[in-house]
Design a protein around this nucleic acid. Structure first.
Length: 572
RNA sequence: GGUCCUAUGGUCAAGCGGUUAAGACACCGCCCUUUCACGGCGGUAACCCGGGUUCGAUUCCCGGUAGGAUCACCA
């Protein structure tokens, strides 16, 4: 009979703290028992933060920050860096994560922070600094005979896998494939370690049909197989075969695998809701078994759907991939100049199916006033819809005051279009431009994102002004010249809008065009064209394009000199 | 291949045994209008297939099919 205490000491001679020590060191959060939701974001520090991360982070943030204890204290949202894979670390990644999320108003209360600091009493928040914590729990598991060292080499593992594949069996270390390692005599283990052989620690998966079943988990027997049934906050009941694999919990370098770190950290840091992508669903049985063996209470799981897109090549839905899809990168939205509020609003519409309805009823409410629920989340992968984002963006920008929008645009230019910055420096001018047509009963909604806005308003700046369109076919070149000539002659910058338009009517009638577009429509043979065509000539002369807000208003902003100069330029 | 998840118009989605099967985006037409946008009105367009259960299935069950996810000393 193996002496597990002796084995534990052999494996972890330097670990003197016990699980009980850590339980005491990280006290349970009183707020959590009183209705507060504790969530965490656990990114690996690859330095790449994408839309999927934002999607999940948003759920975490809302869940915790909208929750309240009985005295009104909100829950906690913390940042834990999951850097158990040393190969993945990228310099400056933590800062990128915090800044990228901060751009969307998603802020952490606790955990890893800027300048390498950490905030909160549940740290360290870098998993790479928590080695002794994990090892104390592994040691305990070894002591109880529920974990064991495994010296299988890569070649051994490959051989086993090949055999299993040949036999069409499930791959991995379980059942008879685990027996040899599980039953290695103490002397042999000792000799291996003395010889410096690398080893991992595996969980000794146990028979779940036994009566050692965890009280927080429902089990179900289906055709002789034991299933665990978990109530997922997003998906409802989820059933999966119980784990029977002797999974690795501690890698040869002494660092735990994700599975083990997740269980230890989320327990010790007192996480109440674990929000993560559905790609984790399949490993849930492993986590459940770990929680069970460790005697921890299960958190509430929220497995979010994966964001999808249509693959141009195959026409099928597929997971957004960071290599193929630029719109997955958060940087894409920053570069295009989408307002963070618009992206958030869009995300919320795909996050909660009743959000749009709520928004229609509460057009001016802050997005945080919406009560977000996991039950209303779709469990199928949503297709990212750029059109919808644009539509939402129009409405959001309309609600942002013009001077704020001007700041936003200037900040954007500072980063992404520095050559245009000098033009934008006259903020008053820019603000007037952005404010155009926004205060009517039917406000214009033609601003979508910075890049597009810049293009849209470019004609206000001489450096960017170009004639982009041709005059309508109804108007001959001579007429066009005559229209502009008379327009310039009669132009009075102090005219109000109706006086101004009256003059255009006069020119229209004098040159044989219909003053009312309807007349031209009814009797096209009696006129050369209509006032619409005459106006278009002026539009093109002043704006370089036929589509724009109201001409008179634009001229007021452009100023008399600029208007006259542009027309003069054309009639030579 | 095993396992799990999912399945309503082009897209996002309501629905939860009886509905003319909502709504939003996109698209088309008309109206408003000096252009465009906005707005208004209208339109095209959907319950994956096959069995059950039921008086009655989009809805419940089973089986297909399709798509997705996952099967690492990565997270």
């Amino acid at each position: 009979m193996m002496d597990y205490n002796k084995l534990a000491e052999l494996l972890f001679p330097d670990i003197d703290k016990t699980p009980a020590d850590y339980e005491a060191f990280y006290p349970s959060r009183p707020a959590a028992a009183d209705g507060a939701v504790i969530t965490r974001l656990g990114p690996s520090p690859t330095g790449f933060i994408h839309l999927g991360n934002l999607y999940g982070a948003f759920v975490d943030e809302r869940l915790s920050h909208q929750s309240r204890t009985s005295d009104g204290t909100p829950g906690t949202f913390y940042l834990r860096i999951e850097d158990t894979d040393d190969k993945r670390y990228v310099e400056g990644a933590v800062e990128t994560i915090i800044r990228s999320l901060g751009f969307f108003d998603i802020n952490f209360d606790e955990g890893a922070a800027l300048d390498g600091e950490e905030i909160g009493a549940y740290g360290p928040y870098f998993q790479s600094n928590r080695g002794p914590v994990y090892q104390a729990f592994v040691k305990e598991l070894v002591r109880k005979g529920q974990a064991y060292p495994c010296f299988l080499t890569e070649e051994d593992l490959n051989a086993i896998r090949q055999e299993q594949e040949a036999n069409k069996e499930t791959t991995g270390i379980y059942g008879k494939y685990a027996e040899k390692s599980r039953n290695l005599p103490y002397e042999e283990i000792e000799a291996n370690i003395a010889a410096g052989k690398p080893y991992v620690v595996r969980l000794k998966s146990s028979d779940t049909s036994a009566d050692s079943r965890h009280q927080g988990v429902n089990y179900e027997d289906r055709d002789g197989v034991t299933y665990i049934v978990i109530n997922d906050a997003i998906r409802g009941k989820v059933a999966m075969p119980a784990n029977d694999q002797d999974v690795i919990i501690l890698k040869a370098n002494g660092i735990p695998t994700y599975h083990f770190a997740h269980v230890i950290d989320d327990h010790l840091m007192r996480t109440t809701h674990v929000v993560r992508g559905e790609e984790w669903l399949m490993s849930l049985p492993i986590h459940v078994e770990l929680f069970e063996k460790l005697g921890f209470e299960l958190p509430t799981y929220c497995h979010t759907a994966v964001l999808m897109k249509i693959d141009e090549e195959t026409g099928n839905k597929r997971k957004l991939s960071k290599r193929k899809d630029p719109e997955l990168s958060l940087d894409y939205y920053r570069k295009e100049g989408y307002h963070p509020q618009a992206v958030k609003e869009y995300l919320m519409t795909i996050l909660n199916s009743n959000f749009e309805e709520w928004r229609a009823e509460n057009p001016d409410a802050g997005i945080d006033e919406f009560h977000f629920t996991t039950e209303k989340m779709s469990s199928a992968g949503a297709l990212f819809d750029l059109n919808k984002l644009k539509d939402i963006s129009k409405d959001i920008l309309l609600k942002i005051p013009a001077d704020e929008l001007a700041d936003f645009l200037i900040n954007w230019a500072r980063e992404f279009k520095p050559q245009a910055l000098p033009l934008l420096e006259d903020k008053e001018y820019l603000t007037k431009i952005l404010d155009l047509g926004r205060h009517d009963n039917k406000p214009r909604k033609d601003l979508i994102y910075a890049k597009q806005i810049f293009e849209f308003i470019s004609y206000f700046y001489d450096d960017y002004f170009t004639i982009q369109e041709r005059i309508p076919e109804q108007v001959s070149d001579e007429d066009a010249r005559e229209i502009l000539k008379r327009y310039l002659e009669t132009y009075d910058h102090s005219d109000d809008q109706s006086e101004w338009f009256e003059k255009i009517r006069t020119i229209t009638a004098d040159l044989g065009y219909a003053v009312k577009p309807k007349d031209y429509k009814k009797h096209p043979e009696e006129y050369k064209g209509s006032v619409a065509h005459v106006s278009t000539v002026i539009r093109i002369a002043v704006m370089g394009r036929s589509q724009s807000p109201d001409v008179w208003s634009i001229q007021q902003i452009l100023g008399e000199e600029r208007v006259r100069a542009r027309i003069r330029e054309l009639i030579g």
